[in-house]
Amino acid sequence: MRIRIAAGMMAGLALLAGCAAAPAASPTTPTTASATSTPTPTPTVDPIADLSLAQRVGQLFMVGTGTDAPNPQTLADIADRHVGGIFLHSGTASSVAQTAAVVARFTALVSPAATGDVPLWVATDQEGGDVQVLHGPGFARMPSALTQGTRAPETLRADAASWAAELAAAGVNVNLAPVADIVTSAATARQNPPIGALDRQYGYDQQTVAAHAGGFADGMRHGGVMPTFKHFPGLGRARTNTDFVLTTDTTVTAGSPDVQVYRALLAAGPALVMAATAIYQKIDPSAPAAFSPKIITGLLRGTLGFDGVVITDDLSAAAAVAGWTPAQRALLAIGAGCDIVLVSSEVSVLPEMYDAVLSAAQSDPGFAAKVDAAARRVVTAKQAGPGAD
């Protein structure tokens, strides 16, 4: 996403059948047969059963707005196209209370007609350092991830819980952070424009990134905010920035630390995963990661076993996806196995994207099944929350 600016929900109940023992028979007492009760299975309620197809499609989009005032089109997108999430991008400095007032304008639109009463996800990009959208009275100035990485993971967890409490007070329940990208050395960090040049990395190896990104994410959860690991399968080795140019990674493989770091991170608790818009030559050279079934469905969901929510990086204005129409971007992302299309910078493309996905779902049963699966993952994650205690 522009610098200005998913965890599986495991559920199920094990029902234990009790069996009463029959009393022992005696010459004077007739034997009484004991009835064995058969447990009644708990019915499974489909979380999207009450949503219309149009509302299910709306859950698959997150649309941007400024922090100084609500974007009128984004307000309309919730009411008219049932959009299920908003993204607060860069704006003027605002206090926690001012930000909460802006957010309240959007959350007030949640209704049976608009969102099917499914609550909004309200997201922002609060990494620290150069990437901290919300700032002003009540928001602490967060250090860069590189500085955060010098702290003990337990200390970082406590810090992140405090930062999450600020976000929650402002009405934010999703943070599109932390960065899980691995920049391989301090000496070459400046050659990596999207991550290393901005000190967005926690360190230079898999273990350090796993410990500190994991600590940050856990702190977010305990503060009531869902974290997001990004940018799968890794931007730490890229030599260009996907915001400004079509980027091809020639190094990362399915077995690279950049990918394997997600095993530990995703096992630790609920989270979203953000799919990159770079092309990965050694995994799938045919398409950006967010458009690649091989990367999203095959690698992330299959090999790594992630069954939570996958959100794309910005598909509204990034140069990396300029070669596809807005409609094609949305269709390819959902078709690849992504659940939420992020439309953060140029919200004017949302109607074209939404209408294309709705039309495809109405005419193609196979695509409709993908829409249902994505909407089900999103609503399930919203219902479960970040797992704060």
Rank of each mutant, 00 (worst) to 15 (best):
G8M: 09
A14F: 09
L15S: 07
L16R: 11
A17Q: 15
A22E: 14
P30E: 10
T31W: 13
A35V: 12
A35K: 15
T44A: 13
V45Q: 15
I48R: 12
F61M: 08
T65P: 01
D68N: 13
P70Y: 05
A79C: 00
G84D: 08
T92F: 09
T99E: 10
A101M: 01
A101R: 11
A104N: 14
T107I: 06
L109G: 01
L109R: 15
L109C: 01
S111I: 02
V133E: 02
R141D: 13
T150V: 05
A152W: 03
D159R: 05
A160Y: 09
A161H: 04
A164E: 08
E166V: 02
N173Y: 08
S185I: 00
S185E: 07
A189V: 02
A189W: 02
N192W: 00
P194C: 06
P194H: 03
D199H: 15
T208F: 03
A210P: 08
A217W: 11
G219W: 11
R221A: 01
G223K: 07
G236S: 09
R237M: 04
D249W: 06
D249T: 05
T251S: 15
T251H: 14
T253F: 04
G255L: 00
V261K: 14
L265S: 10
P270M: 12
L272R: 12
A276P: 01
P288N: 10
A289V: 07
S292Q: 06
P293K: 14
I296A: 05
I296R: 08
L304H: 07
V309Q: 11
I311M: 12
S316T: 04
A317S: 15
W324G: 00
A327V: 02
A327Q: 13
R329W: 07
L331D: 05
V341F: 02
V349I: 08
L350M: 11
M353V: 00
L358D: 03
L358Y: 06
A361E: 04
A361L: 04
P365H: 04
F367P: 12
F367I: 03
A375L: 05
A375S: 13
R376D: 01
Q383A: 13
